[in-house]
Nucleic acid binder design. Structure first.
Lengths: 228, 228
DNA sequence: GTCTATAACGAGATAGAC
DNA sequence: GTCTATCTCGTTATAGAC
């Protein structure tokens, strides 16, 4: 019975993986808005109703793809962080930024799914939050390590932002100065601005040597969060 | 006959405008990927074949919407620049940034159309380039004015980036230092990272007082391009 | 119990004949 | 410009295989 259960569980895992794999293929070809359970089933030689044993609705399938994408990106970032554990803070920062960019370039459609336009009629549930937070936590970890080690450069903070900065710090990293967390959130958004512009074509005919440009830009970002 | 011709031209303009208006409504409801000439025609009480007298294809309609969106955003930015002609460079910079954010918040679907995920199967033609460039030219203008007036702060440039920086400067603004243009292009992308994160929901449960946060962040961006 | 297959619903898009 | 026949879709109910 334990082997039968094991076999069933294994089969279930494999089918689930095959469904997501095919769904990702469709994501690339038609976009998230047109992702269709029927098409996925057809391509897999299944009947559409059979898919409901694995995903209770189309939206749940989308959610699974979104979580997978966030996790895949988060893992890439964590690998880069861990591989540079002994390096200087700025070097770790840029290494993670480059890992993010590298992941985006190799997974453009999954990147568009999580950081591009919202899918009409779909609202991401709270279950996506932990996976979505992983990249951010990697950056927080680097800044925290720098803070406890060589220290952070002093940063200024606009007068009206104190309350909000304290709130964000309490939420995200109580052990860090509020100005650092504020700067970090801004840098986080700005990093994805650089990646999105490259990926979505805004750098066409503008930036040619994108790798060098990116490294220069994110080194600047590292400085704005107080790393050195 | 000249009155008849004038009336015809006017009618054509009006129908064209009505088509685009309805198309924008669909953009909001279903997203760019599902924009269909048929649905637009139906909603307007026309027959789909009649639409082809105004737009030769769905892609051309999309292109028109994209150009309109870029122009609308560009105008908002230009208005903010002109309204602050006598202000300090940093104040002008933040005013234009806030105009960009304000436009995005009031036109979220058009923003997603031009700065969100690419539409599958659609490639923007070169005709969109001039409209797309308008916002960028506004920022270049502000930096140029500052350079000719109170001057720019000195900026560093990564060693390997000299060639690319010179190329970009020659392309975009030969009268500005190459480091300034490089920093400006980065800041431009980073600005849209801030706006996209707010608009696409990444700031949910993270940034609460978004207006204050945004102003703080773009003031920081102004400094990274050498304004003061 | 776990899965797949058949059939059907209501809604929307599409193609072509007229 | 209209009408109709035929597709697609998400989703459910049901029946039967393993």
């Amino acid at each position: 019975m334990s082997t039968a259960q094991g076999a069933r569980a294994r089969a279930r895992k494999e089918v689930t993986a095959a469904i997501k794999e095919e769904a990702r293929r469709q994501l690339a070809k038609e976009g998230a808005a047109k992702l269709s359970l029927r098409a996925v089933a057809r391509e897999l030689g299944m009947v559409s109703s059979a898919l409901y044993r694995y995903f209770p609705s189309r939206d749940e399938l989308l959610t699974a793809l979104i979580i997978d994408a966030y996790d895949s990106l988060g893992e890439a970032a964590e690998r880069a962080r861990d591989a540079t554990a002994d390096a200087a803070p700025v070097a770790r920062w840029t290494a993670v930024c480059e890992a993010v960019r590298g992941w985006a370039l190799t997974h453009p459609h999954e990147y568009a799914l999580i950081y591009g336009s919202p899918v009409p009629g779909y609202a991401a549930p709270q279950t996506t939050v932990p996976a979505a937070a992983r990249v951010g936590l990697v950056f927080i970890g680097i800044v925290r390590d720098a803070h406890e080690g060589s220290g952070l450069a002093g940063l200024s903070l606009a007068a009206g932002l104190h309350a909000e900065a304290e709130r964000m710090a309490a939420d995200l990293a109580p052990e860090l100065p509020a100005e650092a967390i504020t700067a970090l959130v801004a840098a986080w958004a700005q990093l994805f601005g650089l990646v999105s512009f490259e990926l979505f074509g805004q750098f066409n005919k503008v930036v040619e040597d994108r790798e060098t440009f990116f490294r220069h830009a994110v080194t600047g970002l590292a400085r704005t969060v107080g790393l050195r």
